[in-house]
């Protein structure tokens, strides 16, 4: 017994056994790897492709590229002077370890030097973004017309006042207040071309639940067919009507000369 314990196993003598062991071990190993792989795959696929209320930092690549490139280190979080960013935890809906912010809690203050982008070691936050006003973190949507105070005819417009890109990203559009018949309504209107998705509007909405919300651009932004032409835009480009006007006569009864 002592001798057997002392004596090392000679690989040459054990070749047949070790081959069998190797094959069964490999099959088991491959099986476990396959199980783990498909499990992870389905977990990733069934998770929300885009976290709805968890806004990525400025300069974040499109979500697919971002998830391949973000190394989950949190250096962007550390660089943020306003503690806006944090990393998604195990129990939260986002992809664990990736950075995000909640606009209603702490919005992005749009630092001019964009420290979070500079801090990213991999480029998951794109260093091409050098002007924070070009950021596209999300898009503000005035989603609830029933509770927005300006829609009710009041002059709240806090979202408009706090917007860092005021009068470009949010404007107040005047329309008639049909309820009173004699007042105007000033409707906060978001312009996607200028909105950075910083979330200042959502944070400062005075309602218990914000009527204006930052949402992923891909979720809310429409896209016209490439062949669509806006007649009035084309007219301006051309400097003249697109078709010669046939209605250059005073309107009278059709078919009869006046």
């Amino acid at each position: 017994m002592d001798e057997a314990k002392r004596k090392p196993v000679n690989p040459e003598e054990q070749k047949g056994v070790s081959r069998r062991v190797f094959i069964t071990d490999s099959a088991r190993g491959a099986g476990v790897a396959l199980l783990v792989g498909t499990g992870l795959w389905s977990k990733a696929e069934t998770a929300h492709p885009i976290p709805l209320r968890e806004i990525r930092p400025p300069g974040a690549l499109p979500e697919d590229d971002f998830l391949g490139r973000c190394i989950r280190c949190g250096l962007c979080v550390r660089s943020c002077p306003y503690d806006t960013l944090r990393l998604s935890r195990v129990e939260e809906p986002g992809v664990v370890g990736t950075p995000f912010f909640k606009a209603r809690e702490i919005p992005c203050e749009m630092c001019e030097d964009i420290p979070c982008v500079k801090a990213c070691p991999t480029g998951a936050l794109d260093k091409e973004l050098t002007d924070i006003e070009k950021a596209k973190m999300g898009l503000a949507v005035l989603s609830d017309h029933e509770t927005c105070l300006n829609y009710l005819g009041l002059r709240c417009e806090v979202c408009y006042r706090v917007c860092p890109v005021i009068d470009k990203a949010i404007t107040l559009e005047r329309s008639q207040n049909r309820r009173t018949g004699s007042h105007a309504m000033f409707i906060p209107t978001v312009h996607s071309e200028h909105c950075t998705g910083c979330g200042k509007c959502e944070q400062s909405c005075v309602l218990t639940e914000a009527a204006i919300n930052i949402l992923p651009i891909s979720l809310v932004k429409g896209e016209m067919g490439k062949h669509y032409k806006l007649g009035w835009v084309e007219k301006e480009k051309k400097g003249a009507p697109l078709v010669p006007s046939i209605l250059n006569k005073p309107l009278g009864q059709w078919g009869k000369d006046p």
Binding site: L34, L40, G68, C70
Partner: peptide, 16 residues
Amino acid sequence: AVFVLPAIGGQLYWEL
């Protein structure tokens, strides 16, 4: 599997 999965699906699956 950890290295093959990102090549197919483009994400860092093991980090989940």
